[in-house]
Design a protein around this nucleic acid. Structure first.
Lengths: 350, 350
DNA sequence: CACTTTAGTGCAAACGTTTGCGTTAATCAA
DNA sequence: TTGATTAACGCAAACGTTTGCACTAAAGTG
């Protein structure tokens, strides 16, 4: 019915006062320069007539859209919904609204998505799909758009980031396996152009080294993506060249799932023949036939912190300074890891 | 660095022509009234100088923001991500961008979220969180904002909707259980103020009736939400009053999961003691210890169709006519359903 | 009482677009 | 060659805000 929205001018005419007065009366910060009486009348009329500020006009005038953009690699990965919720929870408190975009784990689509968001006038961007070198950070910097990286970071460049201590997470995973008696441990890495997979892999070899365990090259195979599919393929080649391994760590829960199926295809069983530990603690793992031991990260909190950081940056307007918040992971032990079983050798009576 | 974005005027000055010419040269539809030569020069300069249309100015002038809002009850429910992807996939093709909002399954927060989106100037709304009577449809109608309901619909009111044939889905579930020999079948319903739970429950009793099976009242218990938690509680009371039931249908996969845990608490096992079938076919069910038999719905396609419908409505501008698209579900049989086992009666030798 | 201060409000420009209309120069018909 | 048509472009208004400045009347100052 009411196709035409009511504007400030409408209110002004109705009250026989000037548009500017109405504007000021409605604005928190300048309502004090208007007589309390008028303010009251304006607010009343605004409510009655159903006035809603025109966001486009405000944005045009003020140069701020009160929106931010968030780019995630893939919504299908159940890790991201909680992060998004965390982001929204703080955004809501400050009257911000978020655009959602996916990169499909592709840097150039990520780049174009960011461009789109920028031309939509977002006040800032939360980027969860970064590669270790990523043109998006330069793009944002050149356009003067605040940016915060979450989870995945870049090798160099001064950017605000919130991430979890991946190295610590892997260390906990390794320690857990060592305690169970495992020594021949493999690692299914993610693409090394993504910070998390790179760091996790490095942390793996490092932690092993600290325990005087050298990891030979064939113990490590890289999946071409942080996905179930890629994990399965990688695990297949791993199993082909590691008949003696007793445990593996996957760069990712999704990869770990892929490992499950590869394992099954080889007729092996987990954790009897091979222990597996993942990373991320995605939802519903508890329900699985073999519940995955994994490193849990504080998804929701990551979202919250990144949103807070971004809003702070937007408010200050100073993009030259930046910050890094580091969150702690936690090991969640489930059924996919078990003590190593001493397998019978050929001529062994025991 | 380049804090100031380049505008149409900048381009015009740089080329020594009028702003209007630049605008027309860049616009697909009016570029033909400009000499090809000028068009070429303008486009070149626009590219070089990095011109990006100011979305706010465009929106203000044209009254269209090229954005839509989507409201879903809960991002944590893994059913929605695929729907969102479906929506985005068609939105992208038409230069639209989507705001994402949650209702937390609460009608008033849904209402306020919709109000927020409307005041942001969205061109339309995709609403996946409707109750059977929902103020949002009146709100949108009164504001002249195109609206399409997806999955959940309202009892009355002329609205565009895309949903799946819930009745058919339930019928398939019931038929499946009957074929397995089950007769004492229970139903864990969702809140009856939500269309899907209401319809599914009705379809259950109806299908049973068609097979001359009367379902007694104690065979049906209503969960207070479409969630795991609510499902568990409801299943507990169900088991308390149905020691003889051999199968149950849950209004929802999440509820079905709740049934699993309640079952375990009672020391029962599925499907040996009780068969369970869910609804929605959420991701990762295949991995579960007892993979859930469930009714699969075309999530992605639902998203696509609803976005197409909305854009069509936006384009036509005629909100008086409306449409309903009905998608077909599919039964996915997994390990949570099994033939009924004939239990020994007290004095029975067999 | 004459003066300056101040509180309250109005005026008008500006943000960056799009578009109806007016203007010019070139093309056409005769 | 002259008048009418047309192709290409410029002018200026408008979308709904916000805000610096000007203005009026009341209050304060001596």
């Amino acid at each position: 019915m009411q196709r035409k929205r009511v504007t400030l001018r409408d209110l002004a005419e109705h009250l026989n006062i000037n548009t500017s007065t109405v504007s000021r009366a409605l604005s928190e910060k300048s309502s004090e320069m208007i007589s309390p009486d008028v303010v009251k009348r304006v607010k009343k009329a605004a409510l009655e007539m159903g006035y809603k500020q025109n966001a486009a006009a405000y944005a045009l005038k003020m140069g701020s859209t009160k929106t931010i953009g968030m780019i995630i690699p893939d919504l299908m990965n159940p890790v991201f919904p909680p992060i998004i919720r965390g982001i929204q929870s703080v955004l809501d408190r400050y009257g911000y609204t978020a655009f959602l975009a996916y990169s499909e784990n592709n840097e150039i689509t990520a780049h174009t998505e960011v461009e789109r968001l920028i031309s939509r006038g977002v006040d800032g961007i939360i980027y969860a799909a970064a590669f270790r070198t990523d043109s998006v950070v330069d793009l944002c910097k050149s356009q003067g758009v605040p940016l915060v990286l979450v989870n995945r970071v870049v090798d160099q460049g001064d950017v605000d980031t919130v991430k979890v201590d991946d190295s610590l997470g892997i260390k906990m995973a390794v320690d857990h396996l060592l305690e169970l008696g495992h020594r021949k441990i493999g690692f299914i890495a993610g693409p090394k152009n993504i910070s998390v997979s790179y760091i996790r892999l490095r942390a793996f070899t490092q932690t092993m080294a600290e325990h005087d365990l050298e990891v030979e090259p064939h113990r490590i195979v890289e999946a071409h993506a942080l996905s179930e599919d890629a994990g399965e393929k990688a695990m297949s080649v791993f199993l082909g060249q590691n008949s003696d391994a007793t445990a593996i760590i996957a760069s990712n829960d999704l990869i770990a799932l892929g490992c499950y199926t590869a394992l099954r295809q080889f007729g092996y069983t987990c954790p009897k023949r091979l222990s597996i530990v993942g990373f991320n603690n995605m939802p519903y793992l508890d329900w699985f036939a073999t519940p995955l031991t994994t490193v849990s990260i504080p998804h929701f909190q990551m979202g919250e912190r990144s949103a807070e950081l971004l809003l702070k940056r937007i408010k200050s307007g100073n993009l030259d300074f930046n910050e890094e918040v580091l969150l702690k992971p936690k090991l969640v032990i489930r059924g996919s890891t078990a003590p190593v079983v001493r397998r019978k050798k050929k001529s062994d009576a025991s």
